[in-house]
Write a protein that binds this DNA or RNA. Sequence first.
RNA 1: GCCCACGUAGCUCAGUCGGUAGAGCACUUCCUUGGUAAGGAAGAGGUCUCGGGUUCGAAUCCCGACGUGGGCUCCA
Length: 605
Amino acid sequence: MKGPITIAGATFLILGDQLASAADELRSEPLYVLRHSTAHLLAAAVTQLWPGTKYAIGPPVENGFYYDFLLPEPVGEADLRRIEKKMEELVRRNLPYEQVVLSRKQAIERFRALGQDFKLEILAGEAAAEQEISCYATGEFFDLCRGPHVDSTRRLANFKLTKVSGAYWRGEEKNAQLTRIYGTAWPDRESLDDYLRALAEAEKRDHKRLGPQLKLFRLDERTGQGMVIWLPHGATVRRELERWIVDEELARSYQHVVTPVVAKLDLFRQSGHYQKFQETMFPPMRTPEGEELELRPMNCPHHILVYEAEPRSYRDLPLRIAEIGNMYRWEKSGELMGMIRVRSIALNDAHIFCTPDQLQEELRGAIELAQYFMRTLGVQIHRYRLSIRDDQAAKWVGADEQWRHAESALAEALDASGERYEVGRGEAAFYGPKLDFQILDAQRREFTNNTVQVDFQLPLRFGLEYIAPDGSRQTPIMVHRGALGALERFTAYLIEHYAGAFPTWLAPVQVGVLPITDAHVPYAQQVAERLRRERLRVEVDARPERVGKKIAEGRNRRLPYLAVVGEREAESGSVQIRDRAGEQSSEELEAFVERVASEVRQKRL
RNA sequence: GCCCACGUAGCUCAGUCGGUAGAGCACUUCCUUGGUAAGGAAGAGGUCUCGGGUUCGAAUCCCGACGUGGGCUCCA
């Protein structure tokens, strides 16, 4: 399951096993060694504090490390301080990290004597082939480990334990749940402090904090979990995005449709969603008349019905059916997160029905459109991932040949785009491989923002056809593609990306007009009216407050422009403009109107 | 769903050993009409998430439910 694989003549590094299976060069990186050794230090402290603890694995990860334990009693965040103290004590004792190479038999005996069942499992599993078993001893702590490590615990000074969570042994839900303790570790005090400071900064851009603060959205338990209330400001941002998306798609020969969020359950039986995706679907509704209705988890079946609305000829293809489609997924309660992971989802969705000859170009077009959207918004795709099957056949539907065809088609389209990408085995959709556009949130957690998928299955399940030039009936290929992604997740991402300071064209309020005294309110209203005639979004702050306060608040609200108007401006028909950078300028009202209107037209960043 | 936390005014948060509720901002009213980052005063606002329990007495301790956060699993 590890190592490079080859698709369509190109070779890719497999992701998904994180650093735990890192290549040998990576294992010797100084920072990797430091964090890996700190993980051992953590385990040494924990096993001293809680004798009888069984330790599982403890790899370095981005910014730090963790170690998984089966503890004799529950351990929580309140215990972290105590564990850190013990770690510091071990650091002061200047304990060496000593490599001990044992024969397979000796190793098994040793870990059996220690009662370390997880290590025995590893010896019987992934380390089964090795005859010489590398172990490391640090004081009384003894671990199965390839190393390398630092020479002594005294090299480890700049660490901090950060959180406790549950984690399943070998990452499988049916296995025992272990206690995972996370920490961060750095070569020097400054790097540690910088990292902790950056975390605190990231919290300030957190969409869960900024969203309610800027009145963009709220979540209320009375709507049910994962159901977003888009407040007027957030709805404005979303509406601007939607208008833009629809315009751009219409310009690329997409046809927009509107379809309902509820359908008979049989529709999802036919599509296969109910068989393969059921645990992510809301339970069916049973009507008094005995009908079974289902909230749709995806829009594809409805778009297939659009395709079927009339007989199709090859001349109709490619047929690009688009919708900003609402769908509902029953995500488990613990999986929900702010607006990034929700249960009511509005996807910038489309299904392209095409011939095999057209597939390449359609995939490229879908990739380019997504990139155009991202470029215009000044956001960056963190990485591209080609998600393919793994060898657990039960998870996937369709013939091998079609999967291979689909995988190579995506790989070729990606190659043509010139983007570097990685391969995610086992990350495919149940009906076909996909290309995932990955983004990072403020805390550098990775999410899939958008996908482009090739699908041979659904057209077959629905018996879709088109008449080919020779008069024969052929099955079209379906491309499922997002471009912007889900509006909830993407808006959350934008809030964090811009730290709430949306580009003017997206800003819920673009200009705040601030009269200096009551006497200037009529002129302020005039200015606002003029701006509104250009379809700009304006607010007049007519409260009897000092202009300094109005400015402070306008800045807190991240308004792109504040127009201060007083005696001078009213007389000369001008505005005193203050932008978000704090730059001030006096401008003729007409010049300002044109400047902002043009900035909005150009969607300037 | 699972593990670990958390839940006090609209928001951010204090609240000691169990003794009956506090601040700042926001809101309302009054004063102030002030030219570029927060004027002054007063007022109103609470079933301390909900339900049980322990106790003479619970925001505080215990149990459960609900919700939120960080992870795990899953995923756009």
